[in-house]
Design a protein around this nucleic acid. Structure first.
Length: 281
DNA sequence: ATCCAGGATCTCC
DNA sequence: GGAGATCATGGA
């Protein structure tokens, strides 16, 4: 394949590496020369970064990718607000100041974070790639689009188990079934309040509050939610609660009081900073 | 080898 | 409605 040229995108407050590798997204590969291959929107895109410019290996329109990487959001303003009078957050943000919250497709996010529960990130990525290769559309080389709910409609719990999804097979089957009902019509979901949407998502067997909150944050742009997983429990307790163990309810209340409408951004900075430095472990 | 993972559910009380 | 066991699997 002959590469005709790149399309450049200059974007401040953006690190491609941090954004892809901070745990919010599972469909990328790091290649040599610090180039990244990202699969989304039924396409495989090669990209790399030089200073504050991203180079996309295409001459086509890249408006999808600008939207995908939350290009219309002023991160400097958010970081200033979060780090004002908060030395802990200032430290976390300086560690990974280029994280952006990726806008991911709903069904893929739903399935991916069901798969994520009680699982390691490298294995999550492997299972998602396997699911895509088994049921998704071929794109090119060994890359496959994430399957649609329609493509998964007759896949059974046992099929998932045979592929290595373990106890999550039952959850995945239920998620596909419900995702195809009118109640899960994407336009209807988008018009729900955050609390209504969370309640709706948690009707799926296998979707608890943490998975629902990841979907709210990564797919519906509900930036006030604060997904609370084992790492956030450790990191937040250590950095903000004098290392005392907080119940999830108490932690969410405190995080909401401190970070307000930008809690989701704060969560990403804390998660990546804490996990990369083994904070609280 | 043994522990544990971007949890949720089920089963007790 | 809160604590504890259980769930599959493989990476570290």
């Amino acid at each position: 394949m002959i590469t005709l040229g790149y399309t450049e995108w200059k974007c401040a407050d953006f690190s491609l590496a941090e954004t892809l590798e901070c745990g919010q997204c599972f469909r990328y590969e790091k290649l040599e020369d610090d180039k990244y291959l990202v699969i989304a929107n039924k396409q495989v895109m090669l990209m790399h970064q030089e200073d504050d410019t991203i180079f996309f290996d295409t001459e086509d329109d890249i408006s999808f990718w600008k939207h995908y990487f939350h290009g219309d959001c002023d991160y400097k303003n958010i970081k200033d607000i979060l780090s004002k009078d908060d030395k802990v957050m200032l430290e976390a943000i300086s560690y990974c100041s280029g994280i952006r919250l990726i806008r991911q497709e709903f069904f893929e996010t739903l399935m991916s974070f069901i798969i994520s529960q009680n699982n390691h990130i490298p294995r999550i990525r492997k299972l998602i790639a396997l699911l895509s290769k088994t049921y998704g559309d071929h794109i090119k080389n060994d890359y496959y689009a994430f399957p649609t709910a329609e493509q998964l409609k007759s896949v059974t719990e046992q099929d998932y188990r045979d592929l290595g999804f373990g106890f999550r097979g039952r959850y995945l089957e239920d998620a596909v079934k419900l995702a195809q009902t009118d109640d899960f019509d994407i336009t209807r979901l988008q018009n729900l309040s955050t609390n209504e949407l969370r309640t709706q998502l948690m009707l799926i067997c296998g979707v608890g509050q943490k998975v629902a909150d990841c979907i709210l944050l990564f797919s519906f742009g509900r930036y006030e939610v604060f997904p609370c997983d084992v790492w956030i429990k450790r990191v937040f307790s250590y950095l903000y609660a004098d290392n005392q163990e907080l119940s999830q309810k108490e932690l969410l209340k405190q995080a909401g009081d401190i970070f307000g409408e930008y809690a989701g951004f704060a969560q990403q900075y804390l998660f990546h900073y804490g996990r990369s430095n083994d904070i609280g472990k």
